[in-house]
Design a binder for these strands. Structure first.
Lengths: 112, 112
DNA sequence: TACTTATTTAACTCAGCAGTTAATTAACCT
DNA sequence: AGGTTAATTAACTGCTGAGTTAAATAAGTA
């Protein structure tokens, strides 16, 4: 799978996005990351593996703990990808905006 | 599934991202969208349904054609989501940057 | 050595996705 | 009506993802 696809699919899960959000505040161990979730530890461990394979996190070793750390590069790739469409969505919202203003000028006479 | 998850998982497929890229240039019919791909028409039709359910495209009617149009809102949601991590990755790259400069200052003496 | 804590691996279930071909719907053309 | 084009639906296959429990690995502690 290409890098962008695996990053996006890793992020297409609310649990994993919550983990990312937590890690933005600093390193954390697997147990710490698992605590907020109503889910078994192996399940969280698998989520972490998905994030790791996508390059979104990396893991160190500290005795029996495996502290997880957020990695920046894939997030930047997402930002770069979506940025290519900025013009498009800004244009769309501008058009919606002027459409709404036009409606207001013409009174609420329907949507022809 | 929440909206952000379905948007991200819809985009976690190169075929669908290519369709999005094509639609950024303007409306297109299903056949037009399918042309570049070595894939059956029903397969493309399913991809379009995924994009539609994620709100990334909408479809009109023009005789027997169903022109597809790119929708801006979900793309903006992605941009907004990833934007929250901008500080993080810019900080990371700054740290990497100064690390590399430091290496240069100290000569190539290893990585302690 | 035995016990406890942290984490992963194994083995399994269930659901959903990506793709196929064949059939169906819908609208146009003659 | 009959035929063509556009697109979707149906029915099926194979794979992967998310979750489970139970067992295994790894490292500190008594």
């Amino acid at each position: 799978m290409d890098r962008l696809s695996s990053t996006l699919s890793a992020l297409a899960d609310p649990t994993r996005r919550a983990i990312i959000a937590r890690l933005a505040a600093g390193e954390a161990t697997v147990n710490e990351l698992a605590a907020p979730f109503d889910m078994s530890l192996p399940a969280v461990s698998k989520h972490l593996k998905v994030l790791e394979r996508a390059g979104l996190i990396s893991r160190g070793r500290n005795a029996q703990w495996r502290p997880c750390r957020l990695e920046a590069a894939p997030l930047k790739e997402i930002a770069d990808w979506v940025e290519r469409y900025r013009q498009f969505w800004e244009g769309s919202f501008d058009r919606l905006d002027s459409y709404l203003h036009e409606l207001q000028r013409n009174g609420k006479s329907g949507h022809d």
